[in-house]
Design a protein around this nucleic acid. Structure first.
Length: 724
DNA sequence: GAATGCGAAGGCAGG
DNA sequence: CTTCGCATTC
């Protein structure tokens, strides 16, 4: 039996799985079998060391990863793993908070809100404080509050004395804190902060968990933030062992508060830590790995690690220079077309981009060619408006004080309660320090509203009360069925004819399905509805599984972490896009972008294409970006370059890419007289490049971007453009 | 007929 | 997600 667990592992992996040291740091490179090590470690502890699953606590980055890992452990052990705590930081924190809600100063039926709910609440707060929404947009406040919480800071802890700009943010944070507390709402960052405070302030509770969790395992440690680190540090009792797994080269969530430094910090705080490196890669070709290794070597302060593989050299990486973003999309689709004729399946392709906005042109191109695709990580199921509407009804039924749910559905579908009425309710609630629900009730009772509004609000209150009364003894899916029908949500979407409305109805049906299948976690003592809501909130950010079949996959580079594909396209390698323009603003920004590029490259198993467009439309404006520095950092011997047009100038200064135009480009992007990207001179306006044209012959018009950055449409017959 | 609400039309874009 | 003209209710 003991052989079974370790026999499929390489020496470094074996060493990690069977390590007897107190604390372990596993530096696991991309594709080095990190998940395998964690799974086998847990199995080994249980089977070989006779550790009870009850004494193990394992944290992963996503719920999906946690489920997968649990299944793999179960399949090795051929048995249950009950008592084993495995999940995300948020999932595990939530579990603790539910158990100790009173000690955590929460209400029993507290609900979790997502960033969308947060933004709505914050928008209202900013308005009510008469703060300029232009200077302090809800997004900024949201970002600020999350950042404070990630650092363990409450509103009262924010020091605004030296920093005037923090003044308003602190005010907003204070009000937000109060409102969430009164409404029984907890945001994602709050889950972590609250859990940490709970353990910190209740020695008996802390002691219990420290005793219980003899073995703590943390995956993706490079992406932990301050509060998560503090949580692990606190949870580790003197008899506990911690194993952390991570890769400093794959830290890409610094903008979200993750601290790579936590890896270093760990070695300082847990002195008996032994480090093991997993450097053998089982995923990519020598070429891909070699290029990625050189790229990442441009970063400083690395823990040091160089991946190697026994695999073959494989094909060179193809670097394509497109004339513009449309051409880039064409190229990608053309390549996919070609490879599909060879031995590849659609699901073996991934197109990775830096920002979501880039997906549109790629989608259009795929659509034109009739290649099915799937966008990974767009709006997730539980984030969709119609689903959130239905859930908001359920939330209000569970907890009448839930202000976010109240605001969301009081007039969804429309029932004659508009801004004015809602405004009166809000004011009444604020003046009397009561919940919106309570305010609505009391206004109706005192006839504080106009006749029309009074009727509408009364009906709404009755609707929620009756729904709860009528369904509280029914099974969950019948409750939800009643909610979507009695609320009028189903009708509302059904009567609309658009494609959008149809998919909304489908989604609502899907929600019914989900509730029908929902089985209650045995350890939970929540009502089925409350348990379902909690799960929906915590897993909102993730995909429904099993849909990737036979589709080309599109996603951001961030979303690609942890995945692998035979063929990968990384598009948009341009300065200002990738690395992002925002990267310059914060220290280490460029290095994080470089790691992101490294993550992208190491997703590829067999073939890798990287593309760049000389001209790209961003927010409807034309931009001429220089090629990404990452392209220069990859040594020539790994690359084959393709595409590229005549010289294209950036504001008449820097010239780049003088490769000859490919035939396909010339025929595709030409009107017979001029080529896109061609350099021309106009008698009056000077020199520029052709960026667009329409029509043929005498009537054709040409768009020229002149070197002084003016762009003009010219009638070709009159403009007398000379090519340069 | 005034007040209020509805739905449509142009912005806006960081993962 | 705001701004606007039109519709609806009392």
């Amino acid at each position: 039996m003991s052989q079974k667990i370790v026999e499929t592992l390489n020496p470094a992996q074996q060493q990690a799985v069977t390590a007897a040291e107190k604390h372990m740091l596993i530096l696991a490179g991309a594709g080095s079998g990190k998940t395998k090590v964690l799974v086998h470690r847990i199995a080994w502890l249980i089977q070989e060391q006779a550790i009870s699953p009850y004494n193990i606590f394992a944290v992963t980055f996503t719920n999906k990863a946690a489920n997968e890992m649990r299944q793999r452990v179960e399949s090795i052990l051929k048995g249950a793993t009950s008592g084993l705590w495995m999940g995300t930081f948020h999932g595990l924190g939530h579990r603790i908070l539910r158990r100790h809600w009173m000690a955590a100063d929460l209400v029993e039926n507290f609900q979790i809100i997502d960033t969308d709910d947060q933004t709505r609440i914050l928008r209202r707060i900013i308005k009510s404080l008469n703060i300029d929404e232009k200077k302090t947009p809800p997004k900024l406040a949201l970002w600020f509050i999350s950042q404070q919480k990630d650092q363990g800071l409450r509103a009262k802890d924010v020091n605004d004395r030296d920093d005037f700009s923090k003044r308003n943010l602190k005010l907003i944070y204070e009000k937000y804190e109060i409102q969430c507390q009164q409404s029984g709402l907890v945001d994602f960052a709050e889950i972590l902060l609250r859990t940490h405070e709970l353990l910190l302030n209740n020695p008996d509770i802390l002691n219990h968990y420290q005793q219980r969790f003899q073995h703590i395992l943390v995956d993706e440690f490079q992406d932990t933030n301050e509060i998560q680190y503090a949580f692990i540090h606190l949870l580790t009792g003197k008899d506990s062992s911690v194993m952390i797994v991570g890769d400093d080269d794959q830290s890409i969530y610094g903008w979200r508060g993750a601290k790579v430094d936590n890896l270093h910090q760990f070695c300082r705080d847990f002195p008996q830590t032994q480090t093991i490196r997993l450097e053998q890669n089982y995923r990519s070709t020598k070429t891909i790995l070699g290029a990625a290794n050189v790229l990442i070597s441009h970063n400083s302060d690395r823990l040091g690690k160089e991946l190697w593989t026994e695999g073959e050299n494989g094909d060179p990486i193809i670097h394509y220079t497109a004339f513009n973003d449309i051409d880039e999309a064409h190229y990608v689709v053309k390549q996919i077309r070609q490879l599909l004729c060879e031995d590849f399946e659609r699901s073996e392709f991934a197109i990775l981009y830096r920002s979501n906005a880039q997906s549109r042109l790629l989608e259009e191109a795929l659509l034109r060619e009739g290649i099915p695709y799937r966008i990974y990580g767009g709006l997730r199921f539980f984030e969709r408006a119609e689903i959130k509407d239905a859930l908001a009804y359920m939330r209000l039924m569970v907890n009448r004080k839930d202000a976010a749910a109240f605001e969301r559905i009081i007039n969804t579908p429309t029932r004659g309660i508009g801004d004015k009425t809602l405004g009166i309710i809000r004011t009444h609630a604020a003046n009397n320090h009561i919940s919106l629900w309570h305010a609505a009730e009391s206004l109706v009772a005192d006839n504080g509203l106009s006749g029309r509004a009074n009727n509408a609000v009364t009906e709404f209150i009755q609707l929620i009360n009756q729904l709860e009364e009528k369904t509280n003894s029914l099974p969950l899916h019948e409750q939800v069925d009643a909610v979507i029908h009695d609320s009028g949500l189903y009708q509302h979407f059904k009567q609309e004819k658009s494609e959008k409305a149809r998919s909304r109805v489908e989604n609502i049906d899907e929600l019914l399905n989900a509730t029908r299948l929902f089985s209650l976690d045995s350890s939970s003592d929540l009502s089925p509805m409350a348990a379902f809501l909690a799960q929906a909130a915590l897993e909102a950010g993730e995909e429904r599984s099993g849909e990737e079949s036979q589709c080309v996959q599109l996603m951001t580079l961030h979303a690609a972490k942890g995945l692998e594909f035979p063929v990968v396209f990384i598009v948009g390698l341009e300065e200002g896009l990738f690395p992002s323009f925002y990267a310059d603003e914060n220290p280490g920004g460029i290095e994080e972008e470089r790691r992101l590029c490294y993550v992208g490259m190491t997703r590829a198993m067999k073939k890798l294409h990287i593309t760049q467009a000389q001209m790209r439309r961003v927010h409807g404006k034309e931009h001429y970006h220089r090629p990404s520095r990452f392209l220069r950092e990859i040594p020539k011997e790994y690359l084959v370059t393709q595409g590229g047009t005549q010289r294209v100038f950036h504001q008449g200064k820097t010239s780049f890419n003088t490769t000859k135009s490919t035939p396909s480009m010339a025929t595709m992007e030409s009107n017979g007289e001029f080529n896109l990207g061609q350099r021309v001179r106009h008698n009056h306006f000077g020199e520029g490049i052709v960026t667009n044209f329409e029509g043929q012959g005498a009537h054709s018009r040409v768009q020229v971007q002149f070197d002084n950055n003016d762009s003009k449409w010219l009638v070709a017959a009159f403009a007398k453009l000379e090519s340069v």
